[in-house]
Computed example of a mutant assay.
Amino acid sequence: MKRAYEQAQESDGYRVLVDRLWPRGVSKERAALDEWMKAIAPTPELRKWWGHDAERMSEFAHRYCAELDGNPAVDELSGIIARHPTVTLVYAAKDPKVNHAEILREYMAEHMYDTEPGCVDVGK
């Protein structure tokens, strides 16, 4: 995982923007993305309800995981992860712990390795 405002590095491997909105003030060249997966991000309704409020993080995680459970973009991201030795999830949120990319990373790890389905227990 890496913020869109951080310098891209060769070690990032395949860079995937996982936000529905383009990061403010970041050019396409600076972003150095390989892919932009808007569909993997939380729905606008869920994102607005959450508002990056740390106190809502646990409930947000459960709601976002429920969205991911029915989202075909999960299989698309699984394919990207399977084809590339290193994949960096790029996000724009300020807080490295209060953002949907953290939840997505954990969700994908569970999805890819067939562990018990569930959601990240955050905010505790």
Rank of each mutant, 00 (worst) to 15 (best):
S58V: 03
E59F: 01
E59N: 09
E59K: 10
E59D: 14
E59C: 03
E59W: 07
F60Q: 02
A61M: 11
H62Y: 13
H62C: 11
R63C: 07
R63Q: 08
Y64T: 05
C65K: 06
C65Q: 02
C65S: 10
C65V: 05
C65Y: 07
A66S: 06
A66N: 09
A66L: 06
A66H: 07
E67H: 04
D69T: 12
N71Q: 00
N71S: 02
N71C: 01
P72K: 02
P72R: 03
A73V: 07
A73H: 01
A73C: 04
V74K: 08
V74D: 03
D75I: 08
D75V: 11
L77K: 09
S78T: 15
S78G: 15
S78D: 15
G79V: 06
I80C: 13
I80N: 11
I80E: 11
I81G: 12
I81V: 15
I81P: 11
I81T: 13
A82H: 14
R83V: 14
R83A: 15
R83Q: 15
P85M: 10
T86N: 14
V87S: 07
V87T: 12
V87G: 08
T88A: 05
L89M: 06
V90W: 00
Y91F: 04
Y91L: 00
A92H: 12
A92R: 07
A93C: 06
A93R: 07
K94D: 06
P96V: 00
P96Q: 00
P96K: 02
P96Y: 00
P96L: 00
K97D: 14
V98W: 01
N99F: 03
H100W: 06
H100E: 13
H100F: 05
H100K: 09
A101D: 06
A101T: 04
